[in-house]
Amino acid sequence: MIDIQLLGLLNATLQAATLLFIAALGELITEKSGILNLGVEGMISIGAVAGFITAVNTNNIFFAVIVGVLSSAIFASIHAIVTVVLKQDQTVSGLILTILGLALSSLIGKNYVGKKLDTKLESLFSINDPSNIFEVLLSQNIIFYISILFMILISYTLKNTMFGRRFEAVGEDSKAADSMGLNVIKTQFIATCLGGAFAGLSGVYLTLSYVPYWTDNMTAGRGWIALALVIFGGWKPYRTALGALLFGFLEALVPRLQTYGFELNPYIVKISPYIITILILVLLTIYKDGKTGAPKNIGIPFFRENR
C-alpha cells in the first residue's frame, strides 16, 4: 500500500515536469540548429492566451490547442526573420520576443482575465483518486502522453533521419553544412518555428489544464527554467526529460514538505524553483567543468562569404 501523499507528489511532479519539458524540447530543436531563442517565456505566453481565448469562444478544445500552437509558431517566426534571415543578434531578439510576447498576451487577454472554461483538456482515462502508481500514470493529461511520444520521436529523428541530422549539421558547422548543399536558412527557420510550436503547446497545457485560467504574467519564469533545462539536458531529449522530472519533483516537493513535518516559510516556498534552478545550473557547470556540449555554432549568424 503506497502512501496517498506520495501518489499526490508523483502526480504533481509529472504535471509540473510536462509543462517544462515540452517548452524545453522545442528550445532544444531550435538550439540544435544553432539558433538561441531566449523568447521561450513570451512564446509560452502567446500560446497560452491564444489557446485560452479560442477555448472560451468556441468551446472546441482541439481547435484551441491548434490555434495556441500555431500562434506561438508564427510568433517565433519574428525571431526567425530577424536572426536567421537578417542575421541580427540572437540574444537581443530573443529577449525582446519575451518582452513583446508578455505585453501582447496581456493586451489580447485583457478581457479574458477571470473567465471560466467550460471544457478543459482532459486526461485520457478518468480515474478518480488513483490508488497506485499505474493509476497515477494512466490518469495523466493527454499532453503528458503526447510529450513522451514527442520525446521518443524527436530523439529518433535527430539521430537517425536525414531530416533530423540536418539540424545538428547546421548547428555544429553551418559553413560546412552549406557547402554540402544543405539549406541553412531554411533549416534554422523551421527549427525556430518548431521551437515556437512546442512553447505554444506548453502554453495551452498551462491555460487549458494545469491552472486553468488566464491572468497576466502567469508563465512565472517557466520559459527561463525551460532554457536552463536544455543546458541541464546537454541538448539531448532523454536527459532533458530527466531534468524536467527532477525540476518538477522539486517544484512539487517543496510546498508539500510541511505535510512531512517541516516548518517552511511560504514565501521561500514560492521562490524555491528559481533558487533550485540556479543551484542546479551552478552544480552542473562545475561538474562538467564548463563544457556543456552546446552546439558549436549557437548564436553565430550564418553568412555565406562571396565567392
Binding site: L38, W224, A228, I231, I278, L281, T285, G290
Partner: peptide, 8 residues
Amino acid sequence: FGVNEIIT
C-alpha cells in the same frame, strides 16, 4: 565556473 549569466 562560467555559469550562463543570462539565466542566473
